[in-house]
Amino acid sequence: MAAQIAKVTGVLQLLAALPVLWDCLETRSLEDGCTIAAFALAVLKTRCNYWNTLLRRFDLTADKIEIVLRLGFAVALQLSEFLPGLRAAEEQQDDIGACPLQWMYCQLLLFKSSCGHNVEVSAFLGEMLKARRMKAQLDSWGNFPCSQTGGSTPVQSIPLAAQYNYWSCLGMVARLKEAIRLDPALADTNLPAYTRQEIAEAMDHVRCHNCQELSDKLLTCTGCLHIACAVKAA
């Protein structure tokens, strides 16, 4: 994968993904569409500054290209078995299968303009609460039975939530809750469509001020209002 990404160095190579992506959507080649969009997004993320420099000559930015790619990616997911798969897993009480899909869904809601529907801030927070409770319940089990070996598989080997989805969503929740504390009416407004940069910046809300590590267990100093993980807060 890394070697393939490194081969994409020209603007035309990058932009070629767009018509191919839409052709996949029109022909219902949805798996191919997801693959192309994911690959192009990985190319952008790997060398964002490099692409911004090249794209500026064409009055484009990496963020603009990313929006189009995420639109195609979200459409491909919705037309495929993503959302039906999530709902089916929930109905069958397959928490192990539903958990990573729920976190992916929350991540997509942050790009809600790509999802083709409006979502209120309170609804997003509700979906995030469901995702956190689901993951916490599965984490509390400690291990899962392995149907192939008859033994147990450590929980750490099962991706209950992709790392980027997890931290970016938690960061956005912290950011939104702080905004709602200042203006409660915000909870009833539509969730904005965030850019990759805005989501990355929101991760600072779950980053320890002292050690700079991401943490889902942070304390806020009542004096300086800096947030820090429990170990570093003392």
Results as ranks from 00 to 15, higher is better:
V173L: 01
A200E: 13
P184W: 02
D216F: 10
I227N: 15
A131F: 01
G97R: 12
S122M: 08
M172E: 13
N165W: 06
L30E: 07
T195I: 03
T61R: 05
V206R: 02
Q13F: 11
G72Y: 11
F82N: 01
K177S: 05
E198A: 15
A234G: 14
Y166L: 11
G97H: 03
W22A: 09
P184D: 12
F39Q: 11
L160M: 07
L14A: 07
G10E: 13
E91T: 03
S113N: 05
I5P: 05
C208Q: 00
L225Y: 14
N52D: 04
A38P: 06
L41G: 06
S215L: 03
Q92G: 04
C229H: 05
A42S: 12
G142R: 06
R28N: 13
L41P: 02
K45C: 13
L71Y: 14
W141F: 08
W103I: 06
L191E: 04
Q78R: 11
Q107H: 08
R181N: 12
Q148P: 00
L83S: 06
T46G: 11
T220R: 06
L225G: 01
R70W: 08
N143H: 08
V206M: 02
A17L: 07
N143V: 06
W103A: 03
Q13L: 09
S29H: 11
W103S: 01
P100G: 00
Q197E: 13
P192A: 04
E26F: 14
G150Y: 03
A88T: 08
C24Y: 10
A228R: 15
L101A: 02
L110V: 00
E127F: 07
C99E: 04
A162Y: 08
P145F: 01
I36W: 09
E178S: 09
P159Q: 14
D204R: 15
R207A: 12
L138S: 07
R132N: 02
L69Y: 02
C169P: 00
K7H: 12
D63C: 02
L21G: 13
A185Y: 01
K7E: 15
D63K: 03
I180K: 05
M203K: 10
Q13P: 08
